[in-house]
Design a protein around this nucleic acid. Structure first.
Length: 814
RNA sequence: GCGAGAGUGGUGAAAUUGGCAGACACGCUAGAUUUAGGAUCUAGUGCCAUACGGCGUAAGGGUUCAAGUCCCUUCUCUCGCACCA
């Protein structure tokens, strides 16, 4: 027996044979296909539920304790739904393209497919040992050609709609992963995956026009039943702002420069302009004598990583181009500078600087001695930028106006003269969609010398990944696919002439953008999913997963779904109606679980020592699903003790007699509480109530069937193996997975006596036990009649008395 | 800096609408049992006080008969964004 070695503590003696029980029922469910879902037309729409887990990346580390948290929550909920008469779709699959398998391939030469499929096997086994009620016949893995055929198909639709384009603009380059990254994959200027600082690099990229959907992605957030935290994050990420584009002309050359500003009303205070170092006009406008200085500055700026560029924000840098622009409102000549505090990627990459009322411009102006002109009253602009409200001054036709009016008036003025217009801007940028790596979906396009870019014909999908000799990225901006001549060289689908395949692959997010649709019809080889099945199940009723996907996966998937909606392929414009983010499970003591701290818990060990039911129950008992909470092996043992007690109770002699009224009441209270809490995903308090129930009947010698049968059904979604075993012990031959959920009788729950708290000035002085429903007058009378109350009231004046039936009497005295 | 969320015993936490703060569990204390037990059972366990009683939900203020819950100020922590013009 090696039991106990793995978790480091000796587990309680195995009083209930969880190992055998769990194996037995897992086999039963699998062989009976107990949880197979089908599209039964007789079930009305509101009784169909699609409950989805975020599918895992099958890493080589296997499952960690964070995975079962969300999976257990949805599993309990699904089992509850089935027992309450719902048709439930609950699938699982794998997000199986990704860098770790490829990096491993570079190191060892093992094909990522082999690693990935081994890991999938391991994950599947681990997930199955937890007894989740997935319909495994619907499992999908995004790396299989049967799956990515349709990922490519959707890409072609995006391309057809003009939502995919090639671009050479600078992108975030991770030198360690040797690939470009989307903005969403950069955190604090570092690669989200490997924490290497990223820098900007010009690479030919495929980009998806997510910005075209920015407004809808923003507005439709309101329709979603998601946490405010995630909704706010998405809104901030989209970052809508209203303002104006204003065109300045370069003095002399009359070259137009467009700037975006949210404060066109401060135009009279614009004392200089700034172009970002990457701005295309820099070369054109820089005067001969400044060429060297400007060029040096641009080179210096381009070498900075994003991290350096933002971290060194305290000290503004910049260089004068020698050129001047004309401020269109007053025809004043203002100098044009180049500075890296202006970003090429936002607005037009150029700004009008209003140092009096913008902190960044103020700092810059102070450093380089540029004029500061106050146009809003209320501060001392020589001392600090005044960014608050104020009436306009020094602003010609805007003088005396407040912010709102002045903005409106200025926009009208600009529009009349055709030198500007009101516009909306977004922080959201287009989604850089190609990766210079091997292990991803090939992009189904070819480059033809005579026809240009030509999409593959749908019937030629999937375009499969060829085998390569070396997985090492070239690092020059081409994927390892570029080295496979026989794959790269092809013929043009349009003209039949020689052509080259696109060698970039799709980012990992591609497959997860639509997997919830493939579950609906995973074996369909005619369509990505049949419309009937989409109509039957969509949208997803409940989606549970970690908050780390707040702006990546969840925004991308919403975008693709809207595109699919627009081409008439799906029935809803949002995929995930309700979203719940589970909290993180921390190590003992509240620190993060990490390999370096050696505090990572392997679910296999817990299952070996305590059983899957204990593992499930413990993770739900720790606290509310949505919050982070620390692991405690003592807590695991405590929950195991509870299940052990349940088992021991079940071994008592069964009695068909009517149980004592007190216990019937306890049962009905328990049914009510567990029903309510399970429906609301408040599993921790539901478990507490079941513990209270067991504590209540534990003292009895007999086990009353009338109490036990309903309780077993309540427990079953939480501890399904034990539930089935106890159900069988009660003489049932069929699974309880579809047994009717117990109902409660409100009359049996009612207490017949109420404990009434008697307070004086809000402090509890005594308690009364009176029949429930006793009228106010009677309560008040009884309260005042109490000896203790009488003595405490001596010498005091009663100001008033508040009576809450069945709750309290509060006597206010002076 | 901006945005969002959270602060309750020794620990994880609970508390429909403002109505007995701390359910349930861990840990701890004492006892029972001796069946190898770190198993099981019983009782106790917010803090101060021998007691009467008092004090307690980050701190301070407010509304109210009554506040963990509502309002204001401050502090701390977590998460997200971060020169977004």
């Amino acid at each position: 027996m090696t039991r106990g070695l793995s978790t480091g503590i000796i587990p309680p003696m195995n009083k209930y044979p969880f190992t055998q029980i769990e194996k037995k029922w897992q086999n039963y469910w699998e062989s009976h296909k107990t949880f197979k879902a089908s599209e039964n037309a007789a079930v009305p729409k509101e009784k169909r539920k699609y409950v989805l887990d975020m599918f895992p990346y099958p890493s080589s580390q296997g499952l960690h304790v964070g995975h079962p948290e969300g999976y257990t929550a949805t599993d309990i909920y699904c089992r509850y739904l089935r027992m309450t008469g719902h048709n439930v779709l609950h699938p699982m699959g794998f997000d199986s393209f990704g860098l770790p398998a490829e990096n491993y391939a570079i190191k060892t030469g093992t094909h990522p497919k082999a690693t990935t499929e081994d890991n999938i096997k391991r994950f599947t086994r681990q997930i199955k040992t937890l007894g989740f009620s997935y319909d495994w016949d619907r499992q999908v893995s995004t790396h299989t050609p049967e799956y990515y055929r349709w990922t490519q198909w959707i890409f072609l639709k995006l391309y057809e709609k003009g939502l995919a384009y090639e671009s050479e603009t600078p992108i975030n380059w991770c030198p360690s992963c040797k690939t470009g990254l989307a903005n969403e994959e950069v955190k604090d200027g570092k690669c989200e995956r490997c924490h290497t600082p990223v820098y900007r690099k010009n690479i030919r990229q495929w980009v998806l026009k997510i910005t075209e959907y920015a407004e809808r992605l923003l507005n439709d957030i309101d329709k979603l039943d998601w946490s405010d935290a995630i909704k706010t994050m998405q809104r901030n990420w989209i970052g809508r702002s209203e303002g104006a584009d204003v065109t300045f002309l370069v003095a002399g050359s009359r070259e137009p420069i467009s700037v975006y500003t949210t404060r066109p009303d401060t135009l009279f205070g614009a004392t200089y302009m700034v172009l970002s170092p990457e701005h295309e006009l820099v070369d054109k406008i820089t005067t001969a004598d400044k060429k060297d200085a400007v060029e040096a500055y641009r080179i210096q700026a381009s070498k900075k990583s994003d991290l350096e560029r933002t971290d060194l924000a305290k000290e503004k840098t910049g260089v004068f181009t020698g050129a001047y622009a004309v401020n269109p409102v007053n025809d004043k000549k203002i100098p044009i500078w180049v500075a890296d505090y202006v970003l090429i990627s936002y607005g037009s990459g150029a700004i009008m600087a209003v140092p009096a009322h913008d902190t960044r411009d103020w700092e810059f102006a102070k450093k380089f001695n540029l004029p500061i002109i106050e146009v809003l009253q209320g501060g001392n602009v020589q001392e600090a930028a005044h960014t608050g409200e104020g009436n306009h001054v020094n602003s010609g036709f805007l003088d005396g106006l407040g912010k709102e009016d002045a903005i409106k008036k200025m926009i009208t003025w600009l529009e009349e003269r055709k030198i500007g217009k009101g516009t909306v801007n977004y922080k959201l940028r287009d989604w850089i969609f190609s990766r210079q790596r091997y292990w991803g979906e090939p992009i189904p396009l070819v480059h033809c010398d005579s026809c240009g870019i030509v999409p593959l014909d749908e019937k030629d999908l999937p375009l499969t990944l060829p085998d390569v000799k070396s997985y090492t990225p070239t690092g020059t901006g081409e994927s390892p696919l570029a080295g496979i001549d026989e794959w790269v060289n092809t013929t043009c689908p349009k003209c039949g002439g020689p052509a080259k395949r696109e060698t970039n692959t799709m980012p990992q997010w591609a497959g997860s953008c639509w997997y919830y649709l493939r579950y609906l019809d995973p074996h369909n080889d005619k369509e990505f999913a049949s419309r009937d099945k989409i109509d039957y199940w969509m949208p997803v009723d409940l989606y549970v997963g970690g908050a780390e996907h707040a702006v990546l996966h969840l925004l991308y998937a919403r975008f693709w779904h809207k595109v699919l909606f627009d081409i008439g392929a799906v029935n809803t414009d949002e995929p995930f109606q309700r979203l719940v983010n589970q909290g993180m499970i921390l190590g003992e003591g509240g620190v993060k679980m990490s390999k370096s701290l050696g505090n990572v818990i392997n679910p296999d060990d817990i299952i070996n020592d305590f059983g899957a039911d204990t593992m499930r129950l413990y993770e739900m008992f720790m606290g509310p699903l949505q919050v982070s909470k620390p692991w405690s092996i003592k807590g695991v043992a405590g929950v195991h003790r509870f299940l052990d007690r349940v088992w021991r109770v079940s071994e008592r002699e069964l009695s068909r007699e009517q149980p004592p009224a007190e216990l019937v009441k306890l049962l009905h209270q328990t049914i009510k509480k567990v029903s309510h809490d399970t429906a609301n995903l408040e599993f921790n308090t539901a478990i507490s109530q079941m513990m209270i129930f067991i504590n209540g009947i534990f003292k009895e010698e007999l086990l009353y069937t009338n109490l036990w049968e309903p309780f077993v059904l309540l427990l079953a979604p939480y501890a399904p193996h034990l539930g089935e075993e106890l159900w069988e012990k009660l003489g049932h031959s069929e699974t309880l997975a579809y047994a009717a959920w117990p109902s409660w009788d409100e009359n049996l729950i009612k207490e017949d006596t109420a404990e009434i708290v008697v307070q004086i000035n809000g402090k509890v002085r005594t308690k009364l036990h009176l029949p429930a429903g006793t009228v106010k007058e009677e309560l008040e009378k009884t309260a005042f009649a109490q000896e203790r109350i009488q003595s405490l009231l001596e010498g005091k004046t009663v100001v008033k008395t508040i009576v809450v039936p069945d709750k309290l009497v509060n006597i206010v005295v002076r």
